[in-house]
Design a protein around this nucleic acid. Structure first.
Lengths: 132, 132
DNA sequence: TTACATAGTGTTATATTATAACAATTTAAA
DNA sequence: TTTAAATTGTTATAATATAACACTATGTAA
């Protein structure tokens, strides 16, 4: 459950844009799209993005420097995220698999260390691109 | 098994630097360090980095925009990588776990899609930082 | 060997992504 | 209601990465 009501003006504007987008958005494309709403400079965008990521409302796709709205109630406040990325059409989908998150949350490295936070990006071809 | 012998001059210089480094190196820090060896401009660095990544000799730590030498014979030519990253000291360690790589290589998403390539970054505290 | 393709190099310029720094304003809580 | 914390607006600049083009080296196949 997210607490939508706590978003500030800029956060709201930027979240709505990302949430409506079918694909991940890059910071400067966001900037371009919200200039008519009074958000004029990069720091305004990056600050909102930082907060939204912190809240778990959006995620950063690290390999693409792009942002996508969270569509997965099980990624606890941006701590544990997994995505599939199509290398042809660049479609990004958030993976919500209880088995995967359980496996990764319990994964221990050689020293027995556990890591509560992770980001996983799978690459391949999406269904569409795979059959073309 | 890597084929060391196929590295070109610039690739060799840059790989050696990364390989000797105890921590991931950023592109411009690499550039600074190899200028005395005649590599003077960003494209020369990025081209070598691209090839080395392609070969699986180094990996890019996406969340840090930094490069680390491969220390894991099981990450097949850069296709399947996993790292742990300490959020305090920024120490990065390549994870080589047969169980993990097997699990991820066999992971199927909701549509039954398999992804042969992935990058996983775990975040937390390393042993040292955890006990301080 | 020659010639051809492919890969790598050197270089300049520029595009893209992100943050520093500081003043002003809003918000929430004591 | 006044104070602290968070948010905003703004300018400038830092950090990361690629485009484009001329040139050189390397491998290969006729």
């Amino acid at each position: 459950m997210h607490k939508e009501h706590t978003l500030t003006k800029n956060q709201r504007i930027i979240f709505d844009l990302i949430d409506k987008s079918p694909e991940p958005l890059k910071a400067y494309s966001i900037l371009f799209n919200v200039q008519k709403k009074g958000i004029k400079a990069p720091p305004q965008v990056y600050r909102a993005l930082d907060k939204l990521v912190e809240m778990g409302k959006i995620h950063k796709i690290e390999s693409r420097n792009a942002f996508i709205a969270c569509h997965n109630s099980s990624c606890q406040v941006a701590k544990a995220t997994a995505f599939s990325i199509c290398e042809i059409c660049e479609k990004v989908t958030e993976i919500s698999s209880a088995s995967l998150s359980k496996y990764l949350a319990n994964f221990k490295d050689k020293d027995g260390m556990k890591y509560s936070k992770y980001n996983l990006e799978f690459f391949g071809l999406c269904k569409k691109c795979n059959t073309r």
